[in-house]
Design a protein around this nucleic acid. Structure first.
Length: 635
RNA sequence: GCCGCUAUAGCUCAGUAGGUAGAGCGUAUCCUUGGUAAGGAUAAGGUCACCGGUUCAAUCCCGGUUAGCGGCUCCA
């Protein structure tokens, strides 16, 4: 009896019933069979050893797919657990999943692991890999599973089994002397893992809850080739060098002070960056039909109760008292915007009204969560609230998507979007949430964009589209977000006068493009490794005199540049030219001009461009125009 | 907030097995006026994060606090 198998490319082949996935793979191609790690059979992820007993669709996973990488790393996690089991008898095992760039496994051990232990564990893993032990799938009943893990004292596994749904198929995987509760699938054998490396050690609560015991987590990663691992390690090193906290200090952009944990201080050079971003933002928003507003940082308790923040967001807010009345520092800008909208009567003809605000918000973040400019306790959202007719929803969302797209392109970021749906802690009926979620979907789809859904990840007042941008070393950051809100207009009884002369309720969009200016600056610092394009660079041109005789001319050039909207700085110190160049290079200034006797005499400038070196002498006016062109084109 | 680690000059870091500290870079002054990634000399600069304890004596040992780092959790 033959079964039909539909492959990923749509082709259909017949195989005898019971042929394994591996055999089919081999039949497709030897090369694919060599690289195959697992498969998806009728939508279910399975091992290569799985027999095909019915007509099926089949997709083979190699390391080139996310699924392939995940199961490769997951298998590596099992190998690490086996190694830890060998070296630390009495260890209890937590969970060990694959994560985006590797895997981890949580262990309950009496003594914390030391860095030396990591090396020993790695060695033991090597040994297990060399043994090329097959991964064997074993399906067991709930009773058998409980009996087995209770007998070995694996209390965490027992807890996991007890929490599995009634109808769950319980499976274990065994390689050699190690057996673990696991849904699978896994690579065929331990020898498939070529280059594994343990990366770091951390404490992590059992099941992520601070009420539970803290386990020891070991992070690692693995690749089918040494060169891929090396590349990955290189990328991590590269990321370390780009760390915005380090560059922020070196380039004198901002600082953090003990006096204000999580509250960044922007230095003059950092302010230039900020102001450039803000003026770009103002320009673009004016063009896109936004009006700018500014609302107070502190508002009274009654208002926060009305907005729902008192009930839904209190633990993140800061409070104060004025004349014995409770006030709160704003964690979001929306209520301020709403109060402005409500300050007068609106006609349907006025809508949409787009009110933008660079609003400083404060949120109480856990002390351990703070991280440079990426995670702070006060930040400026490049916020806007759009008040509109229900019929304008799709068009307005598309408008925001286009605006965000325009922004990210200027910085050279690619991005993807995610749609987040109703969270547990939320306001409003399911019907309204469904309607809002559908509206967001429609807009994304109208724009022909791919998206991922994050169930239960929306804001408490509405679903949202998040924009995750990808920086030049492949990391992603959530920046822009568009949130649709039917709740706030209701809470604040907003209305507009419709064609019929009656009051109607408008719909609201909350949206940000940069997200937080602070975080965006952090991302830019890392993206450009501190070497900002000329339009953003705090110092665009550094004038380097060869001798004191060049000082007057340098000063003349400096003034000419200031007149022409360029940011120059003169290094007129009594130092050698090589020394000044080195310093300017380390400051990552886009242009250096060497000013010696020749330039003074010919009224030229000797240009040295960052990344390109000596460009020779050019006419001053010509150079000014080059820089102006860079600034104009945002290069 | 929780777990682990850390805190010495503006920056990066050494050091004292308990007897109040040192380097490089940077800064200042002087010499040097040198053409594309570090010229030389001299000097200044530290309540060794803060508060307590042990001790004849604490930067060092102990406890606490604060802040930072790596995670967990959370998020712009």
């Amino acid at each position: 009896m033959a079964v039909k198998v539909i492959l990923k490319d749509g082709s259909v082949k017949d195989y005898p019933r019971g042929t394994t996935v591996m055999d089919i793979t081999r039949n497709i191609s030897e090369g694919l069979a060599r690289n195959a790690l697992g498969a998806k059979l009728n939508g279910k992820k399975v091992d290569l050893s799985t027999p095909v007993n019915e007509d099926s669709t089949l997709e083979i996973f190699t390391f080139d797919s996310e699924e392939g990488r995940d199961l490769y790393r997951h298998s590596t996690a099992h190998i690490m657990a086996q190694a830890v089991g060998h070296l630390f008898p009495g260890v209890r095992f937590g969970i060990g999943p694959a994560i985006s760039e590797g895997f981890y496994y949580d262990f309950d051990v009496p003594e914390n692991f030391s860095p030396e232990d990591m090396a020993r564990i790695e060695e033991e893993m090597e040994r297990i890999i060399k043994e090329d032990l097959p991964f064997e799938r074993i399906e067991v009943s709930r009773q058998e599973a409980l009996k087995m893990f209770e007998a070995s004292g694996e209390k965490y596994k027992v807890e996991l089994i007890n929490d599995l749904p009634e109808d769950a198929v319980i499976s274990c995987y065994r390689q050699g002397d190690f057996i673990d509760l696991c849904a699978g699938p896994h690579v065929p054998s331990t020898g498939k893992i070529k280059s594994a490396k343990l990366l770091s050690l951390a404490g992590a609560y059992w099941r992520g809850s601070e009420k539970n015991k803290m386990l020891q987590r070991i992070y690692g990663t693995s690749f089918p080739k040494k060169s891929l691992l090396d590349e990955y390690i290189f990328r991590i090193e590269e990321a370390k060098k780009r760390d915005h906290r380090k560059l922020g200090t070196e380039l004198d952009l901002f600082s953090m002070q003990d006096e204000g944990p999580g509250f960044p201080f922007f230095h003059p050079k950092g302010m230039i960056l900020r102001n450039e971003l803000e003026s770009f933002w103002r320009e673009e928003h004016k063009r896109a039909g936004y009006d700018e507003i500014r609302t107070p940082v502190i508002l009274n308790r009654a208002m926060w109760e009305q907005s729902g923040h008192w009930d839904h967001y209190r633990e993140n807010m800061y409070f104060t008292k004025i004349d014995d009345i409770d006030f709160a520092v704003k964690p979001m800008n929306c209520p301020g915007s709403i109060l402005i909208y409500r300050s007068k009567l609106h006609s349907y003809r006025d809508l949409p009204i787009r009110m933008a605000e660079l609003g400083l918000v404060h949120r109480h973040e856990l002390s351990g969560a703070l991280h440079g400019l990426m995670r702070v306790r006060c930040f400026t959202q490049d916020d806007a609230h759009i008040f509109m007719l229900p019929s304008q929803i799709t068009e307005e969302i598309i408008g925001v998507i286009d605006l965000i797209d325009r922004f990210y392109k200027v910085f050279g970021f690619e991005y993807h979007v995610e749609l987040s749906t109703k969270p547990e802690k939320s306001m409003g009926s399911d019907e309204i949430w469904d309607m809002a979620t559908e509206a967001l979907k429609k807009a994304i789809e109208a724009r022909g964009m791919e998206y991922k859904i994050n169930e239960g990840d929306g804001a408490f007042y509405g679903p949202k589209i998040d924009f995750h941008l990808r920086d030049c070393i492949g990391r992603t950051w959530q920046c822009g977000t568009i949130q649709l809100d039917f709740q706030m207009p209701e809470k604040f009884a907003l209305n507009y006068i419709g064609e019929d002369g009656q009051k109607h309720r408008p719909v609201m969009i909350h949206r940000v493009v940069f997200g937080s200016i602070e975080r965006f600056i952090g991302i830019l610092i890392e993206h450009f490794a501190g070497a900002f394009p000329a339009w953003l660079a705090p110092v665009q041109v550094k004038l380097l005199t060869v001798t004191d005789r060049g000082l007057d001319y340098a000063e003349e050039i400096r003034k000419a540049m200031l007149q022409n909207g360029i940011r120059p700085e003169v290094d007129g110190r009594n130092e050698k030219i090589g020394y000044k160049i080195r310093e300017a290079q380390m400051e990552k200034v886009p242009y250096m001009l060497v000013i010696g006797d020749r330039e003074v005499e010919n009224k030229t400038v000797a240009v040295r461009k960052r990344g390109e070196g000596d460009k020779g002498a050019v006419d001053l006016q010509e150079f000014i125009e080059t820089v102006q062109e860079d600034i104009r084109l945002k290069r």
